[in-house]
Design a protein around this nucleic acid. Structure first.
Lengths: 238, 238
DNA sequence: CCGGAAGTTTGCGCCAGAGCAAATTGCGAC
DNA sequence: GTCGCAATTTGCTCTGGCGCAAACTTCCGG
């Protein structure tokens, strides 16, 4: 059998893709056209690295569709997910923070569509497009806030609370209403969830089983549906 | 008895204070003079909040001397130290990342000298002083890196490794050579160290006792001297 | 339809480290 | 000095959750 066609097809690079996204929202059609003309567009399968920790930051990216997680790999080979990035955000903006290598690895969590520009254009964008820098730094600020939260969570919460929190965040960001609850609309393994919450896949599995018995969630292989978000909120508070 | 005079006196606001600091290093004397004329200078005792999480970000700050930790307080009242800031860095730069409240509390760890400006001057600085923004964002980038590291540490390391790491970082940043080792040159309690490493003061105390028996450190009340940094490095790796 | 791989569940033992409690030490105030 | 508080030490208990191992399930390719 020949290769399945990708479910997501590369969109024609159209101004409307960017006009509603923060970094470009203040720009005129013509300016956006120029920006797009300089971009490269690419589709990634899930679980693929867009760029890797330590590599030369040659390009910066914008996630048009899909979901990316920012991971770090420890000396002993464990992966830790530091951050999740939803569609519509810039990533790999090492240049914006004065670095010339990427500080972490960006890995697609779903099939994703990403456009990118060579790093040398960064300064051009900042100089020529009013509001570009400001908006970018807002995103950055948001991420700093998230990282702060994550530190506090890791430092003070129990595993059960962290996993509940992670699930809640996931359904907020990528939840899709289905009958009987909200489902995370991309495949996610117990392993993934354990890397998000700094625990083991065994513990995650046990927790989910327990919750399933209580009717809070339903899960199949790589699929999780939250039936009772409110109960999870309670759990997440301890 | 009358109050002891502060050990640190407020310096006359002098151009030389700023010329070597990154955000201002590219500026001319005259420009720095203007910047200083608009600043307010203040001395803080240890353990005092410079600004607090959630408050309106009315001012932004630069730490001229001393040491500040950025803490978050959980709903249950525990403190978690997210970051340490050494002298010479900007802090409270909520405005730079598009926020109008401070995302965390800044608490002096030592007696400190801080100058500050009203937030409305931020845009002026960025617009008028070339390199100011760039340099600021480098600092920010550095902090993001640190936070990343902290997340990974919390997620993967054991308490002993984390405490060893924290000590090493402290002596790197604020260590003072004394005979027989390097001493952290400000008072630090077991409690402080436990908030830095997300553990309890009891565990920190036990660890330090153990290390002291092995000759790696010496400690008195609120004082810690590291005698064998290399051994700590080994411990910190697991 | 079958075989293997990937993902998941579950049982069991163990231990790092938290929680609690009490004793001890050092320091500052008067 | 000596009183009192803050910081530290130390013992004991208890448990969350990790490590290991084995069985089971679902999916996919051929």
């Amino acid at each position: 059998m020949e290769d399945l066609p990708p479910r997501k097809t590369l969109p024609r690079l159209d101004e409307s893709l960017l006009t509603h996204l923060p970094p470009f929202s203040r720009l005129e059609k013509r300016q956006i056209r120029t920006i797009l003309d300089q971009a490269t567009s690419r589709r990634y399968l899930p679980g693929v690295a867009v760029f890797e920790e330590g590599h030369e930051a040659e390009r910066f990216y914008m996630l048009l569709d899909g979901y990316v997680r920012v991971v770090r790999i420890t000396p002993t080979g464990e992966q830790v997910t530091a951050l999740h990035i939803p569609a519509g955000q810039l990533l790999g903006i090492a240049k914006a923070i004065g670095r010339d290598t990427y500080p972490a690895t960006a890995m697609t969590a779903t099939e994703s569509i990403v456009i990118s520009w060579p790093t040398r254009l960064w300064d051009t964008f900042v100089a020529e497009y009013d509001g570009f820098a400001t908006e970018t730094y807002k995103t950055l600020g948001h991420r700093v806030g998230e990282m702060n939260t994550r530190i506090v969570e890791l430092a003070t919460q129990q595993v059960e609370q962290r996993v509940a929190n992670a699930l809640l965040r996931l359904i907020n960001q990528t939840g899709r209403k289905v009958e009987g609850g909200i489902e995370i609309d991309f495949p996610i393994t117990r392993q993934d969830l354990s890397e998000l919450t700094a625990t083991t896949l065994h513990t995650v599995s046990r927790l989910l089983s327990g919750w399933e018995k209580r009717g809070l969630v339903e899960s199949k292989r790589k699929r999780i549906k939250v039936c009772d978000p409110h109960a999870l909120v309670v759990l997440s508070q301890g």
